[in-house]
Nucleic acid binder design. Sequence first.
DNA 1: TCAATAGTGTCTGTAAGACAGTATTGT
DNA 2: ACAATACTGTCTTACAGACACTATTGA
Lengths: 234, 234
Amino acid sequence: MRVPEPYEPAEYPPFAVAVDLVVLTVRNDNLCLLVIERGAAPFEGHMALPGGFVGVDEDLLAAARRELHEETGVSVADVHLEQVATFGRPNRDPRMRVVSVAYLALAANLPEPRAGTDAAAAHWMPLPSSGGDAWAFDHAEIVDVALERARAKLEYTTLATEFCAPEFTIGELRRVYELVWGTKIDPRNFHRKVMKTRGFVEETGVSTSRGRGRPAQLYRAGQATSLHPPLVRS
Amino acid sequence: MRVPEPYEPAEYPPFAVAVDLVVLTVRNDNLCLLVIERGAAPFEGHMALPGGFVGVDEDLLAAARRELHEETGVSVADVHLEQVATFGRPNRDPRMRVVSVAYLALAANLPEPRAGTDAAAAHWMPLPSSGGDAWAFDHAEIVDVALERARAKLEYTTLATEFCAPEFTIGELRRVYELVWGTKIDPRNFHRKVMKTRGFVEETGVSTSRGRGRPAQLYRAGQATSLHPPLVRS
DNA sequence: TCAATAGTGTCTGTAAGACAGTATTGT
DNA sequence: ACAATACTGTCTTACAGACACTATTGA
């Protein structure tokens, strides 16, 4: 029941509430995940997600923003941040009962992370991961759920532009889809699809020459947030 | 940071963790939401979602199942239950800091609820709701998010069968879509779409005569869980 | 010159929306 | 008889996948 009279906080179980971050970025033509190498028990030497406890008067999203800033130094304005799911299995943390709200963060080309104040070492891990068994806590599951969320949202939203610089080519946008989905996409059909979806991208009028091949037009993210009809994985 | 040494629980903020349930069912050709009329302050007389605190050693999903059983008396096996999102704004509950994990529950034709042990009165509210301003806490927002989740999942999953009895007609399945989406659907095109989607429904061989019109074939839910291509709202 | 990428266009199969028409019931 | 619902089928249009072809660059 939800209606006991005046609450007596001490009567209620001592929960800690944390946020964990699945931070994705595209660097050097790779999809990368921010991981922390744990320097202390439990799970010393294992990989963990960045995260931390929510303050007494802190909103969940604010806590996620704060942790993201602390771990990456990035100004949070450029980063897409959304709640994914909450993980609260009783013994997921052997020390005490911790309920953790997982957030997904996406941004373009984030810099090398700065390590936290503790002994932890943060770095970018290219995906798909080689050895997926070295995760601390239930973080392997959190990563799975968050990645599947990201893959699904690329289908029916314009989220992929969050992985791109403010101005980007259609080829770069396509590369985001290929990296996140792990598939090859026909450049010609992709180009047609993006162009005919109103508000997905808008022209800048500028063209660029990056690397080989014919120079490409530069585009900005458009006003649309959802894709009708969606861009389906095959 | 996530790595302070041996935790000292007392050092961490006193959070309470709760689950809130958005329970939907189809009754008398209406989509209905289970609401509790609060009998005590705060928000006395306002509508609230069923829910309650998570036990010290209780999993989140287990807590949701327990509350569902307490409020409806339904055997939980027949009910679809999934996590939707977590709400943790610092002052969402004026009494203390409560972080609440919202769950969506769907089932066919649930019985009249039995009121809880407290003064609260539970009943089914037909949707779309008439006066949407009488909600306690942030429950109006929780309902919005959960309903949108349900609407979206009808598009690309076979979730609609959860609203149906074990055996149902295509017309009844279509009615679920119409009630949840609040739209009219062409019966002929819907019939064709359901039939050509492998694993959505399977024949029973039996036909029935409910109400007026030509008797309809009865179907069971099939093995499929996702719909390719999706059934889109227009 | 060649490889690589950008961009346009064409063909084909699938599927959705609109809707005509038949079948089988209750009233 | 008539209204209501179930079910089948047809026509048209939209769009995705496959792929030919041209354009423009760096090596």
